[in-house]
Amino acid sequence: MSPLPSMMTGKIGLKHGAGGRAMRELIRDIILKEAQPLRPGSVGPDAMDDGAALRVGDQWLVITTDSYVINPPFFPGGDIGRLAVSGTVNDLAMMGATEPFALTCGIIIEEGFAAADLERIRDSMQAACREARTEIVTGDTKVMGNGELDGIVLNTAGIAFSRRIVSDRGLRPGDRIVITGTIGDHGLAVMAHRHQLGFEGALESDVAPLNDLVAAALEAAADGVVAMKDPTRGGLASALHEMAAKSGVGVVLDEGKLPLRDQVRAASELLGIDPLHAANEGKAVIGVRPEAVDAVLAALRAHPLGIEAEVIGSCVEERPGFVILDTGFGRRLVSEPEGELLPRIC
């Protein structure tokens, strides 16, 4: 029997959509296999960044698109509509484009979906657009038969113009890693809700548009902000792995500095989930040059969405591509989650 060449054999599994290594392999080995590199000086699909950036005159046109499926569509702290607007606004912001010019929205609805729910989702999208100071300028609607789709699927695309671009690969040894607030809120809230775990206590998603918060950080530091990513599916662990690998540095995290709500800590202990693996929908992880870290931290903490911002680690030359957690007792490698997070018994 011949050895298996990669995970990309046979059929696509749910793990290929979970934001970790399997998904990156799917994109690299199948979707981008025949892709040609983009015109020089642009950020194209081969960069596998949060979006694309095309040079237009003296500025950049940043484009991103994302599809949203979430069961259930309404969850504590938000809904699929708020998620779809925030996610795309945040992908633009992670490229440094903090003024989303316009969004598009495609909706695919399962036959039998309640009109009242659709209205709620619409209202929620509009509210999120107001927060991000953008609007949805065009869209598309399709309906599919009962059972052909799980409720509703949203796709949003966003464009923005920007004078500068921040990639997810600009880290070098000595840089600091900053997180804009508590981790794991979205992942644990949705998981507890979906599996009807019967938790009482405010487990709430953090879903929010981050363009203003990111703008504050960029304003404070000029060129001190060197890499950004939103730690969504796969959590902080996946985001940092990707940043570390692309930048060719190791990342050492100080566990004691990780902002974590009591509720999230308790739920993750009960369910055996590593909060580093749980999704965030309203947080950014930012790589900052050491001399700029105080200014960036102060600017973040002055914003309502960044009050709990914290320096959580730094970049080192050793072990490029690895993320190491210093627990105060010892050190361990941070793994990447594989597939959907599930409650554990052991």
Binding site: E200, D262, A266
Partner: peptide
Amino acid sequence: ATVDFWGVKRA
């Protein structure tokens, strides 16, 4: 019993 796990409560 309703039990407080220092953050969330659960039956």
